[in-house]
């Protein structure tokens, strides 16, 4: 038994060198295998989630993401929706977009961004303001996150 344990110990110790070589030489291969096996992605709370709708406006386009309520277990009561503007020929000074989170008309609001000042506002159909979480100046455009409450019309 002692001999067997010693042999296993030596075998693992030798294998450690092979593991180090495989870790570096096969890093790309194992990374791809790991991602395809686990289907892991970056959290939508970081990326803004998948784009649900793209609106073409001639010289620019708007990308409306799906509402993000993702939590550790199930969904949270509060979340956000991200709206991106990307120029084709250039962005106008003021951008305005009607957004229907998750395609729900009763949740609709209008988001307005002044690209000169970077100030954004969001208002629902009766003109009440919605909280804008953050405005981001991207390399080629702008993004705005508007806070949402699950199941509640703005």
């Amino acid at each position: 038994m002692k001999r067997l344990r010693a042999m296993l110990g030596y075998a693992w110790a030798f294998l450690a060198v092979v593991i180090v070589l495989a870790t570096f030489m096969g890093n790309r291969y194992f990374s791809h295998k790991f991602v395809s096996a686990t289907k892991i992605t970056v959290s939508p709370r970081v990326t803004g989630g998948d784009v649900a709708k793209v609106s073409e406006h001639g010289n620019y386009k708007t990308m409306i993401h799906r509402p993000v309520f993702d939590g550790l277990i199930g969904e949270r009561s509060t979340g956000f929706i991200q709206i991106d503007w990307e120029p084709v020929d250039g962005l106008p000074p003021v951008l305005e977009e009607r957004v229907e989170p998750g395609g729900k008309r009763e949740m609709a609001f209008t988001v307005r961004l002044d690209t000169r000042s970077g100030a954004a506002t969001a208002k629902d159909h009766v003109g009440s303001g919605l909280p804008v979480d953050q405005v981001y100046k991207l390399r080629t455009g702008w993004a705005v996150r508007v806070l949402l409450q699950k199941g509640k019309a703005p």
Binding site: S31, H32, V35, K39, I40, T41, V42, S43, V46
Partner: peptide
């Protein structure tokens, strides 16, 4: 823990 429960990484990096 978040990766195990939600299959997402709570870090602003690229996956691959």
């Amino acid at each position: 823990i978040p990766a195990a429960l939600t299959k997402t990484i709570i870090y602003p990096g690229t996956i691959i």
